[in-house]
Design a protein around this nucleic acid. Structure first.
Lengths: 340, 340
DNA sequence: CTGAAAGCGCTTACAG
DNA sequence: CTGAAAGCGCTTACAG
């Protein structure tokens, strides 16, 4: 076992008190310039690092954030939604930039997850991401709220939600996607993705979709909406269901890119061409979207911005500053799958 | 600010000493069954959680692991190698299963990253992943080793490396990929990916590739190896370089899937057909690989197994058990890009 | 099986 | 600007 230097070792070597060492190492203005330099030099020499547990315990904050990813229990154990992953990347970076460490955990919705990161003094606050069933999810959110835990979440943004939420402008995204296809002459639309309060993000996208249809005087037919969760397989099945019903189609709006990729596969296997016969638009702009066949037109979520907003918000919350929920822009990214 | 119960509050309520509370909560066999139950009930009622900083400080271990991802400084800030992401998923899960929390950090190789997670008592050990330049990287590894830090890494596995390394059997992977194409009649090979000691993983894959060529009596021509780092763009450029040289080709082995996807794009843009004119094999089996055009034949790394091995190894290391480096199998996954 | 006490390594009033 | 002292909330010998 290697020996770990403490602030007392440094104090002894520097000929000052341990308090002074502690101050010098945190750049307190109370310490004499030269004394500080001397102390910092010795600390470096001894490869000294402040013990986080001790300093956290004493100062009652941890300097770490916990990122909790909730997965659908139905989803494959090894396959994490690529969109999450990209959020994870941007959140890690944003946290590092603000000087916070990031504890990461993937959780099933069924777990006892409000897992008390903050209560156990592991983290100062939580960032929540997830695609699970929102109805179950919301209850847990209320628990967190009642406990007074600091948390922000990314997902659907609506009135009367517990806590502070950030999210993409899903309604606008659904609208933009649909509007673009209408403008390029498509008339027979379907929507792939669960449209219920179990998944409010998809619901908002669907609402945006419907709004665009209405605006253009097109009929909204409920049989043209086919439930799917955000996997390729589920998108494939949802599209097959539509095909089996022999619904007339020339455009499909999908609640996620994964759904779109699965949907295109089903349509192509059924002998139709994308985009000639049927145009597709996805949602998220995951890396895969540019490599699908054909490359997928999609609504991009700005994960970089979202990560920064989430981290800034939770940090402000921790410092008891005022934080308001807000929406991140949804941007149409045009590739070949929409035919224009 | 919410009030946080301490073990003293529970002791008071239960009419026992604080020591007994501490024991009961950790299921010490020293505590009377009934006393324990009573204490645990009160703890639950008070929503009590053991303060991690206090318990860590006292017991001198943290119950957390740090996962450090190193990126090429050249890589796009927002784009994380999908292969890492999949490792991240499996490591998070494996860590959770062993009861460890996971601190995650993305770092540039240039950062002062040996960032002392263990020295600062933030983590009991480190897991290292990265695709940066190995020559720079190795030096840092030596530093960690000298400091006596507990760490394992995933990447190239060779003799005389500092620390304990795990990795895919890259040589075997390169061999399998090449052998398969030789067996299906291809004769004119190129290899896309940097083949030098700056990237020993790619180097090993290239060696496996060459071994298969030799075995089949095919010539190894150095002009048929084109450097690339693991991005789509880099693969695209590497393939273009080959095309510009008018090298005769009917098979391309790529050091990663991203390289392969970029390489196929270049080849297709130049008017060749994949796999009819040129067969492609990638490496990693990232999720994207099944959705490329055509779907990519590739060498799969078993990220699930790798994650479990890494976590188990670091945990054993922390407990001063013996740990040996080892290789994870490389498996050929056949899709359309290889034409058979 | 239980309790009193020490102590993990810091930070931070308090006093000078 | 500096030091002596208290104390963050636990765990763990030690004594019974």
């Amino acid at each position: 076992m290697k020996y770990k230097a403490t602030s007392f070792d440094i104090a002894y070597k520097a000929g000052v008190s341990q308090s002074t060492v502690s101050r010098a190492l945190r750049n307190s203005p109370l310490v004499n310039e030269e004394t500080r330099k001397k102390i910092q030099a010795i600390a470096k020499e001894l490869n000294y690092k402040v013990d986080k547990n001790a300093s956290n315990l004493r100062s009652q904050h941890t300097g770490t954030l916990a990122l909790l990813l909730f997965e659908d229990p139905t989803s494959d154990d090894s396959l994490i939604n690529p969109f999450f992953l990209s959020m994870l990347g941007s959140i890690t970076r944003a946290a590092a930039q603000k000087g916070y460490d990031l504890l990461v955990s993937f959780q099933q919705l069924s777990d006892d997850w409000h897992a008390d990161y903050e209560d156990a003094s592991k983290a100062d606050g939580l960032i929540l991401l997830g695609y699970g069933d929102y109805v179950d999810y919301e209850e847990k959110l209320h628990q967190l709220d009642e406990q007074g835990t600091h948390f922000v979440r990314y997902g659907s943004v609506a009135e009367n939600q517990p806590g502070i939420s950030f999210g993409c402008d899903n309604f606008e995204g659904g609208y933009l996607a649909t509007k673009h296809l209408i403008d390029s002459g498509r008339r027979h639309f379907a929507f792939l993705g669960g449209a219920s309060d179990h998944c409010p993000e998809f619901w908002a996208r669907y609402q945006g979709h419907c709004h665009a249809l209405k605006e253009a005087g097109l009929e909204i037919r409920s049989e043209c909406q086919s439930d799917a969760i955000s996997t390729e397989e589920s998108g494939y099945e949802a599209a097959q269901a539509l095909i089996a019903q022999k619904i007339k189609l020339d455009a499909v709006i999908c609640a996620s890119d994964l759904i779109a990729i699965g949907g295109m596969r089903a349509i192509q296997e059924a002998g139709y061409k994308v985009p000639e016969d049927v145009a597709f638009v996805g949602f998220d702009d995951i890396p895969m979207a540019s490599f699908s066949n054909p490359p997928l037109t999609t609504i991009q979520q700005n994960t970089r911005l979202a990560g920064e907003m989430l981290v800034e918000a939770i940090v402000n919350l921790i410092h008891n500053l005022d934080v308001k929920p807000s929406l991140t822009p949804a941007t149409l990214v045009i590739r070949k799958s929409c035919g224009s």
